Simulated assay, not measured.
Amino acid sequence: MNPSIAKLSDIAQKEDRLIIGLMSGTSLDGLDIALCKIKGNGTSTQLDLLQFDTMEYQPAFRQWIRQVFAKRSIDQQILCGLNPYIAQVHADLIIKALKKWSIQPQSIDAIASHGQTVFHAPQSLTGDISLPNSTLQLGDGDHIAVKTGIICISDFRQKHLAAGGEGAPLAAYGDYLLFSSANENRILLNIGGISNFTFLPKTDSSLKAYATDLGPGNTMMNQFMEMKFNLEMDKDAEIAKKGKLHNGLLQELENNHFLTLGFPKTTGPELFNLEYLNMAISKSGLNDLSPEDIMATLNSFSAQTMINGIRKATDGIDDFRIYVSGGGLHNPLLMEQLRQGFPSQVTSFNDLGLNPDAKEACLFAVLANETLSGDPYSVSRIQDSPAVCMGKISLPY
């Protein structure tokens, strides 16, 4: 027997596993690395976050990704080369993190790598039914496994597509296993490049859990900041706070069919981008707005999209709580508007006992744990999501 296969079998039968979860989102700020100790599987899963760090990307690395990110016309040679290059960079960052934590690679059971999304194309977004639902994440699992010497589980979204899903959002799986409650209905709101939430009804409810994208989180703000100010983000909403909301532009931004669709649904920067912003500016005849006013309006657009979506999801439900994670949690203007929309329900994911910045990386560690030792039936109560274990397994030798 291949020794890697034997090791894989041993890992699957262990009482608990050490799994490194990786997440690199559409914001392109860096790689989230979460070292998780996971015991059990399914609804009995217990997760202990042992270490967490966000390893910042170098500007030159971001520029490589931006050459293909959410673009229909690209250089195929760059796309091809980025698949191993991203994996090599991620592997180097994992090794760097393990050295920082004084942990030997051989003590790690598996790496759960989400990869870097460069294009998301479900039929519901493209309107093209000639090709099946598709999504593409770069960062080859074999390269990560070989360079780190650790079994790597990656490319999670392809099984979701193959089983009839849209490849996103996947948060419902880990959220359902870890954070379902008998005492309250929960909205687990993640504000990354795209905003999304998982709705978790009380465990005795007849309602089903589901995850859905809402619309823009940080992506349009970040893209505008990079173009206009050569900055990665509007830190502490400093630029947006200097501007004024323009209702005419906000109305044009909100005038999109996707925002009227029911849940669950999925989207990405392929829709919500600078082209979308420029079209809204042109239609509203507001070509003389200051960059500060545009940022203030984009901030409100993201906030209002989330508020409207959560109100739709909780219509008729009085007792619910909103737990926020993701980069948007650190945007004070965005959070202020969310709290105005829900004065008593908004809180940080910290209240559930998990670092909100580490949440997505941890959720992929949970998905890898299910691939190793779980049962697809455990997630059968998630609405419109195939009951599958996801991820391709790459062996280091």
Rank of each mutant, 00 (worst) to 15 (best):
Asn2Lys: 05
Ile11Ser: 09
Ala12Ser: 15
Lys14Leu: 07
Glu15Asn: 12
Leu18Glu: 07
Gly21Ser: 09
Leu22Cys: 06
Met23Ile: 08
Thr26Phe: 02
Asp29Pro: 08
Leu35Asn: 03
Ile38His: 07
Gly40Leu: 10
Leu49Lys: 11
Leu50Ile: 14
Leu50Phe: 07
Gln51Pro: 02
Gln51His: 15
Gln51Tyr: 14
Glu56Ser: 13
Gln58Cys: 04
Pro59Asn: 10
Arg62Ala: 05
Ile65Asn: 00
Ala70Gln: 03
Lys71Met: 06
Leu82Ala: 02
Ala87Phe: 13
Ala87Leu: 09
Gln88Cys: 11
Val89Ile: 14
Leu93Lys: 13
Lys96Tyr: 13
Leu98Glu: 04
Lys99Phe: 02
Ile103Arg: 03
Ile103Ser: 03
Pro105Met: 02
Ser107Glu: 13
Ile108Asp: 11
Asp109Ser: 11
Asp109Val: 05
Gly115Tyr: 00
Phe119His: 09
Ala121Pro: 00
Pro122Phe: 10
Gln123Met: 12
Asp128Tyr: 03
Ile129Phe: 10
Ser130Val: 04
Ser134Gly: 08
Leu136Pro: 01
Gly141Tyr: 02
Asp142Thr: 10
Ile144Leu: 09
Val146Phe: 03
Ile150Phe: 08
Ile151Thr: 13
Arg157Tyr: 06
Arg157Glu: 02
His160Thr: 09
His160Ala: 11
Ala162Ser: 15
Ala163Lys: 12
Gly165Asp: 04
Glu166Phe: 03
Ala171Trp: 05
Ala172Pro: 01
Tyr173Leu: 14
Ser180Tyr: 00
Ser181Cys: 08
Ala182His: 13
Glu184Cys: 10
Ile191Ser: 03
Gly192Glu: 06
Phe199Ser: 04
Thr203Glu: 13
Lys208Gly: 04
Lys208Asn: 11
Lys208Met: 14
Tyr210Val: 06
Tyr210Trp: 11
Ala211Glu: 00
Asp213Glu: 06
Gly215Tyr: 06
Asn222Thr: 11
Phe224Ser: 08
Met225Asp: 05
Met227Trp: 06
Lys228Gln: 15
Glu232Arg: 10
Ala237Ile: 03
Ala240Asp: 07
Lys241Asp: 14
Gly243Trp: 07
Lys244Leu: 08
Glu252Ala: 09
His257Phe: 11
His257Thr: 01
Leu261Asp: 04
Glu270Phe: 08
Leu274Cys: 03
Ala280Phe: 06
Lys283Met: 11
Asn287Ser: 12
Glu292Asp: 11
Ile294Met: 08
Ala296Lys: 07
Gln304Ala: 01
Asn308Ile: 07
Gly309Arg: 06
Arg311Lys: 15
Lys312Trp: 01
Asp319Asn: 14
Asp319Trp: 05
Arg321Phe: 00
Gly326Leu: 13
Asn331Trp: 01
Pro332Asn: 10
Pro332Leu: 10
Leu334Asn: 02
Met335Tyr: 02
Glu336Tyr: 06
Arg339Gly: 01
Gln345Thr: 01
Phe349Lys: 04
Asn350Lys: 10
Asn350Asp: 14
Asp351Ala: 12
Asp357His: 11
Cys362Glu: 02
Cys362Ser: 13
Leu363Pro: 01
Phe364Gly: 02
Ala365Pro: 00
Leu367Tyr: 04
Ala368Gln: 12
Ser373Lys: 08
Gly374Ser: 08
Gly374Lys: 04
Ser380Asp: 13
Ile382Arg: 06
Ile382Asp: 08
Gln383Phe: 15
Pro386Arg: 15
Ala387Cys: 11
Val388Met: 05
Val388Lys: 06
Val388Leu: 02
Ile393Thr: 15
Ser394Phe: 00
